[in-house]
């Protein structure tokens, strides 16, 4: 139990540094620290699938973020700011904070998940019948590819669309560059 508090404290400290530091590369590396702390946390929370995925995704996203920031000089952000914008953003943060604190009272105690106390919960059925109905020993795999495969199809569509958008944005610029260098 203590390891969870230690890891979450580490993640919060890294997030504080990432939010407040002036150095963009340092902020990116602190976000990487949060991600690897989260991967360790998933491992201790008995979710090895997510731990593996989180580690490899973290490596690739660090590469993407570092490539975006490393060659560009950090622009010093000017101090002036509109009064209305500042008030509105502080109001948004405070409203969500109050709403979240209200919700914290209604949560179940840690270590006692909801599906245990709910008769006929879906998760209980997956655990009991997953091996017999799908043949997969990894219940998470049987959920994402058999019971809820429709969800995974939508996920694949979202991934396809976002990669298509990134390719369209980047490729338009490259084509213009090629044309300009020809002229």
């Amino acid at each position: 139990m203590l390891i969870f508090y230690a890891l979450l404290l580490f993640m919060i400290i890294a997030a504080l540094i990432a939010v407040e530091t002036k150095n963009l590369l340092g902020a990116v590396i602190c976000v990487g620290a949060i991600g690897f702390g989260g991967a360790l946390m998933f491992l201790f929370l008995r979710a090895p699938d997510i731990a593996i995925t989180q580690i490899v995704v973290e490596v690739l996203s660090l590469i993407i973020l570092i490539r975006a920031t490393i060659a560009r000089h950090v622009t010093p952000v000017s101090g002036d700011r509109e009064f209305v914008g500042a008030v509105v953003s502080v109001a948004i943060v405070l409203t969500l904070f109050v709403a979240g604190v209200k919700v914290l009272d209604a949560l179940p105690p840690f270590g006692d998940p909801i599906f245990v106390r709910t008769p006929g919960a879906a998760s209980q059925t997956y655990l009991e019948q997953g091996l017999r109905q799908t043949g997969a020993a990894n219940i998470v795999s049987s959920v994402i590819l058999d019971y809820r495969a429709y969800d995974t199809l939508g996920e694949a569509t979202v991934l396809f669309t976002s990669i298509l958008g990134a390719a369209a944005i980047l490729r338009g610029k490259s084509r213009k560059l090629v044309k300009e260098s020809d002229a």
Binding site: A47, D49, I50, T53, Q54, V57, L60, S61, F115, A122, S123, Y126, L127, G130, I139, V140, V143, I144, R148, D151, T152, E155, V158, L159, S162, I163, A166
Partner: peptide, 16 residues
């Protein structure tokens, strides 16, 4: 197992 399955897809989407 249900939140794990949902989070697994969400992590890969977040990379995209």
């Amino acid at each position: 197992p249900l939140p794990q399955a949902l989070v697994l897809t969400s992590i890969v989407i977040s990379l995209g």
